[in-house]
Write a protein that binds this DNA or RNA. Structure first.
Lengths: 335, 335
DNA sequence: AATAAAATTGCAAACGCTTACAAGCGTATC
DNA sequence: GATACGCTTGTAAGCGTTTGCAATTTTATT
């Protein structure tokens, strides 16, 4: 049985008859300790049920072995899969993860970063579709390294891990065009967000150009990242007489698909759909969703790995990582 | 612009010409400070860009305003929705959340709890289908209050928030029986877990009894909580000639549904399905899934609220909370 | 056996903040 | 005008570690 209030390093030192410093050394695996005293200390630790107090340790060492993760929403499959990758490699490197949901609200994002800074996290991983200027400033002020996971700042200054959205959307668009569905709608988040304006839209237009199609602004749609939004935007998409859609979110894509089918469209014969996140949603429906394939877990994992390097002041060759993507051809596209 | 290394309480005190104690008092909203000096201190804080160091604060006050959340997997919709509820009310009470994924591995659960204890969290919320004895011991040893969210220990000793699984499964089972599908399969996790053996199974049998049906062990199935497992177990379910299934996980239910439909069964006419978690998965498919309706977000929120009381040493009337559930009738059951 | 070099240990000062307890001060009371 | 009381503020002792430096003990060398 453990003692009520846990033992301190002082108790262990006393028990063995050595100084605090020595106990601290064996606890931290410092090599300069004689094997025999190490043994004794370890025994005492065992007997007293001593566990180092991480808070005290953090104060003294100025390292908390804790990182902060700022994300829009844990219940969003896309982000939660990234989070899982982050958490796994964080644990691998013995970091703990402080999680904050922001719903992409810049105010909450700012608060979150400030809060994490005052908690003295050793690093931060940030996810979100857009980096508000204020958030950017806050990040700069926090003296912890930051890496963006599945997100990017318009200036491309911050370390980040993503896929090549331009190419991915370009390929997806080209695919449906090739199938003869040339009136293709694009559903993204707000164009005020760099990722939409500077990446997805660019890829989309590029595919249009390559096919000699003219860009029609009426085929551009904006929707929140949820099923209801998909259902809702679907009506307008139908009115636009599009015969294909590239959607940036799986739930949205599902909403569109169900609406189309409920309104007499055959998917994929009359209407093709390609979604972007390839979450579990994409494979459980009938038809299942053709999707851009993103290595979500890896994006998280690589971000975290990069962060460990940053926290360690190691030099990093490439801070703007683009992981390879694929196109997972399934039931919402022909063949 | 902030100074490179952030200001300390000492700097603020110096600037204003008061003692540390006074600064500490205004930072902590202590009332016994003259309004005029409070003003001055606040100004100095602003000018210096001072942010309290939470680690130092934690060491001195023995409170970290951080709680730990131990969960099987963030990418599991059921748990992530609970987590969202937890996080929201945690923020409301100004707590931060330290998140750990365990994949329900008792070893990792034990490590997680120990780790959280050494990080001096003020409280812990634990999620998982079963509480290993060792985990229970570890929880007892950690001197932080713990509440179980969407989980329960076989002895019912720990504070917890759940729905009434017995009744919920009983109702679901009764529903399909009433529809004439009397050969109903039950898919759960391992019977070694209290929640399956002592709750779901009991509710299932109770409904059978009430309908005068005899219990057939061949209708009991065990599957992991994922789509592939559902697909896999579905074959056996079909062989058992069941004409309905009560599944404990939405992804599993979806796997079963798709398998059944692919093998000529009409859902719900030939085969009814009721799932248990009512996650987003349940509504995006066609047909959509009839499900036990669980107030998942609330389970998380209420757990966290209870934890704040526990951390505050407030007395709690009922530590074994059962939130109301519903039956969401959708496309996988008749009418 | 003496001395240098190496390996172990101990000392004590931080780390940045909270919090009794004590002290200072102005003012109401009689 | 002395006494007491209430409000503000300061003093200083922790909180449990880490860590640079010095001291001590071992071990190696000659």
């Amino acid at each position: 049985m453990q003692k009520k209030s846990s033992a301190t390093i002082y108790d262990v030192a006393n028990r063995v008859g050595v100084s605090l410093a020595t106990v601290s050394r064996v606890v931290n695996g410092n090599s300069n300790v004689r094997e025999s005293t190490k043994r004794k200390v370890l025994d005492a630790i065992e007997e007293l049920g001593y566990h180092p107090n991480a808070v005290a340790r953090g104060l003294a060492s100025k390292k908390t072995t804790t990182i902060g993760v700022v994300m829009p929403d844990v219940t969003d499959m896309y982000y939660s899969e990234l989070a899982r990758g982050i958490d796994d490699v964080a644990n691998m490197y013995h970091y703990d993860v402080l999680l904050t949901n922001t719903d992409e609200d810049p105010v909450r994002e700012t608060m979150a970063v400030n809060n994490l800074a005052s908690k003295q996290v050793d690093g931060i991983i940030f996810m979100g579709n857009e980096l508000d200027r204020e958030v950017l400033n806050t990040i700069a002020a926090a003296d912890a390294p930051v890496v963006l996971a599945g997100s990017l700042d318009s200036e491309g200054k911050l370390p980040s891990v993503n896929i090549d959205y331009v190419k991915a959307v370009e390929e997806a668009t080209a695919t449906v065009i090739k199938h003869g569905h040339q009136r293709v709608a694009l559903v993204t988040g707000p164009m005020s967000h760099a990722i939409n304006r500077m990446h997805r839209l660019v890829g989309y237009q590029s595919a249009l150009d390559a096919a000699g199609l003219i860009f029609d602004e009426d085929l551009l749609f904006t929707a929140h990242q949820d099923y209801a939004a998909g259902l809702q935007i679907a009506e307008k998409i139908m009115q636009s007489e599009a015969n294909a859609v590239i959607a940036y979110d799986d739930e949205v894509a599902l909403g569109i698909m169900n609406y189309m089918q409920d309104h007499g469209k055959r998917v994929p014969e009359d209407f093709e759909i390609i979604t972007s996140n390839d979450t579990k949603f994409a494979i459980v429906t009938r038809p299942d969703l053709t999707s851009i394939g993103q290595p979500k877990y890896d994006i998280g994992a690589v971000s975290m790995r990069m962060l460990t390097k940053l926290m360690n002041n190691e030099i990093i060759d490439d801070t703007q990582v683009k992981l390879p993507h694929t196109l997972e051809r399934r039931g919402t596209t022909i063949n």
